[in-house]
């Protein structure tokens, strides 16, 4: 946010307003101008409370999705059918933990701690993506998650690299690079199955049959029923509507499914010459709302495992904190590095 910095409140005031801004409207106008000019809002900049709240909600939900999303895939680490696949899957699940870390850090720039957000996840006050409430029943599900779920996530997330909030946008650049690797590994895994034995091919088709519709639901409710969309688009947190992104995803997947030799489970799916895009069948929004409300096949299991890991790890975190406190006390608050130079 280089030019329209009039809403900047912390640090050195650049234009002679050292006291608390007597004119909130001026800050609002400066913020609006910055967003309109496609500049980045940074943590120390003034921002409307609702903008901050929207970002916290969205970034937290995204971070939670990364760490809950580790579960369905981790479910197959111990059964991966070759050492190469096992290494790829472990690296992928590790990336997701890493994404969780960047995203919780991005949320911290808005003044909320990771502990606070985890507490909200564990108590059900914040959500994660509903897609992870579906089970991974066979090895092919690992491929379907990579191809479809990560593919949908990328379609959603690439525009977020241009999101108006700087730390989120920058985190997304790195996340998207890794997600694109995840998507390719999923496609490649399914391709190997599709071209493998008849049992392997059937396994791949079954996985695509089960993951296709939930993947389409990942873009959120239709535009006319989406509660947060309009404001987020005005703030340039979001750049495209749910339905636009869903359409883009369908158009990408159709030729890929053909190359894979797999069928997408939608009899109404067909090319619409006039509109230059694919038409597709009606999504079962009842299922979407039902899973969102907590009634999906794995909602209970995912949250229970997350809470258990957190609760069972409490003594470890307490030990680390106690050790750090003892250590800090011994060094009277000043640390020196290996060279004896004081560390910042």
């Amino acid at each position: 946010m280089a030019t329209a910095a009039a809403h900047r409140t912390a640090g050195a005031p650049a234009y002679g307003a050292p006291h608390a801004d007597p004119d909130g409207d001026a800050r609002q106008r400066a913020f609006d101008a910055a967003v309109a000019a496609d500049e980045r809002v940074e943590p120390r900049d003034w921002m409307p409370d609702a903008y901050r709240a929207t970002l916290v909600r969205q970034i937290a939900q995204h971070a939670h999705s990364e760490i809950i999303g580790m579960q369905p895939e981790a479910n197959w680490i111990t059964r991966a059918p070759s050492l190469r696949r096992k290494a790829i899957l472990m690296a992928k699940v590790q990336d997701e933990a890493g994404h969780g870390l960047y995203l919780y850090s991005a949320a911290e720039t808005l003044g909320v701690s990771r502990d606070e957000l985890l507490d909200k996840l564990h108590s059900g006050r914040q959500k994660y993506s509903s897609i992870f409430n579906y089970p991974t029943l066979t090895w092919a599900d690992v491929g379907a998650i990579g191809w479809l779920v990560d593919g949908a996530a990328i379609t959603n997330q690439v525009p977020l690299c241009r999101c108006s909030y700087g730390p989120y946008a920058r985190a997304m650049v790195r996340v998207c690079k890794e997600e694109s690797f995840h998507q390719r590994q999923g496609y490649e895994l399914l391709l190997a199955l599709s071209r493998g034995t008849s049992e392997q091919h059937a396994m791949a088709q079954d996985a695509v049959d089960r993951w296709w519709w939930p993947s389409l639901m990942m873009f959120g409710p239709p535009d006319d029923a989406s509660q947060h969309s309009a404001q987020s688009m005005a703030w340039k947190i979001k750049r495209h509507s749910n339905d636009e992104l869903r359409q883009r995803f369908v158009d990408i997947c159709v030729p890929q499914a053909e190359s894979l030799g797999l069928t997408l489970p939608d009899p109404d799916l067909k090319w619409n010459e006039e509109h230059g895009r694919h038409d597709f069948g009606a999504i079962d929004w009842t299922e979407f709302w039902d899973v969102l409300k907590g009634n999906g096949p794995c909602n209970e299991q995912r949250l229970t495992q997350r809470r258990r890991a957190h609760d069972e790890g409490a003594w470890v975190r307490e030990a680390a904190a106690a050790h750090a406190a003892k250590h800090a006390a011994k060094h009277t608050g000043k640390h020196t590095g290996p060279t004896g130079v004081e560390q910042a």
Partner: peptide
Amino acid sequence: GEWAGHAPVLEEEVALAN
């Protein structure tokens, strides 16, 4: 690898997987 998704803190998810 059995720790994935069960570690006591997110940094350890990364470390143990690494």
